[in-house]
């Protein structure tokens, strides 16, 4: 499957995927006009990866502000990862936040609520 290399804009995060290492990273703010359209390729890539690859999937997030429809898409993405985890796949998530945005950590915790796969919220060392 083709990797995604999407540069970030003021309203959308950058998206990088690497099939070889199983790493996916999202970085920035997320206010796309159409969140479904924006996130669909990523969800497809991740579902494709967990279906085909035997290697673990690591999702790294450095997201700051997220609009409501992006929250919805992330919840769907985490649901997909949860299903993969329950099916025995190795999936994990690291959510990075900056020291000056401690409140983002509280939000990441909210997202974590329904996830039983490894989900770490980490303060980024500056």
């Amino acid at each position: 499957m083709q990797d995604i290399h999407l540069p970030g804009t003021t309203s959308t995060p950058s998206i990088q995927t690497d099939w070889q290492s199983g790493r996916v990273s999202l970085c920035g703010d997320s206010y796309p006009e159409d969140a479904f359209e924006f996130f669909e390729p990523l969800l497809n890539w991740i579902n494709g990866y967990v279906a085909i690859s035997e290697s673990p999937l690591i999702l790294e997030l450095s997201l700051l502000y997220i609009n409501t429809s992006s929250i919805r898409m992330l919840m769907d993405l985490f649901d997909d990862m949860e299903s993969a985890h329950r099916a025995g796949k190795k999936v994990s998530l690291i959510w990075y936040y900056d020291a000056e945005n401690e409140r983002v950590a509280e939000l990441a915790e909210e997202f974590r609520e329904d996830c039983t796969f490894p989900f770490v919220v980490l303060k980024r060392q500056s």
């Binding site: 409501t68 929250i71 919840m75 909210e110 997202f111």
Partner: peptide, 10 residues
């Protein structure tokens, strides 16, 4: 419910 809660906090 979760969506609303997270969105409100944002």
């Amino acid at each position: 419910e979760r969506l609303l809660r997270i969105s409100d906090r944002y």
